[in-house]
Computed example of a mutant assay.
Amino acid sequence: MRLGSRPVPMSNLSLEQRAHNIRRNSLRMGEVQGQGYIGQALGIADVLAVAYFHALEYRPEDPEWEGRDRFLLSIGHYAIALYAALMEADVLPVDELETYGMDDSRMPMSGMASYTPGMEITGGSLGQGLGIAVGMALGLKRKSNPAFVYNLMSDGELGEGSTWEAAMVAAHHRLDNLVCLVDFNNQQADGPSTRMNSAEPLVAKWEAFGWHCQRVDGNDLGAVVRAFDAARELSAPQPRVIVFDTRMCKGVPFLEKRDITHFVRVEADEWAKALAVLDEGGPQ
Rank of each mutant, 00 (worst) to 15 (best):
Q128M: 07
L97F: 09
G127H: 03
G111Y: 01
D95K: 12
A81E: 04
Y83F: 08
W65G: 00
L73Y: 10
I75N: 13
S125F: 02
D104H: 15
G131E: 01
G124S: 05
G67L: 03
P108Y: 03
I80L: 13
D103I: 14
L82H: 15
P117K: 11
S110R: 14
D90K: 15
Y100C: 05
G131Y: 03
A85W: 10
I132F: 09
A51R: 02
M109F: 08
W65V: 01
A89D: 05
V91L: 11
A133R: 04
Y78I: 00
S105E: 08
S105C: 07
E96L: 15
A55E: 08
T116W: 03
A49P: 12
D104M: 07
M109N: 08
G124P: 06
V47R: 06
D90H: 15
M112P: 00
A81H: 05
L92M: 11
A49C: 04
Y83Q: 05
E88G: 10
P93Q: 04
Y83K: 06
G127N: 02
L73D: 06
I121T: 14
R70E: 03
G131I: 01
S74T: 06
L86A: 10
W65R: 08
S74F: 01
A79F: 03
W65M: 01
L97S: 06
R59C: 02
V91K: 15
G101V: 11
M107P: 11
L72I: 15
Y115A: 07
L82F: 13
L82Q: 15
F71K: 03
I121Q: 02
L73Q: 03
L97C: 06
L126A: 05
D104P: 00
L56I: 15
M102T: 15
S74D: 10
M119K: 01
Y115S: 09
Y52W: 15
A55Q: 09
S125M: 07
G127L: 07
Y58S: 09
E66V: 11
V47Y: 01
I75T: 15
L82E: 12
I80W: 04
D103V: 15
G131S: 15
G124H: 06
A81T: 10
L126N: 02
M112Y: 04
G111W: 00
G111F: 01
T99F: 03
I80Q: 09
E61P: 01
D90C: 10
D103P: 00
L86C: 11
F53A: 04
Y100L: 09
E64C: 00
V91N: 13
A113N: 12
S74W: 03
R70K: 14
M112T: 05
L56N: 08
L92V: 12
E98H: 14
F71E: 06
P117Y: 14
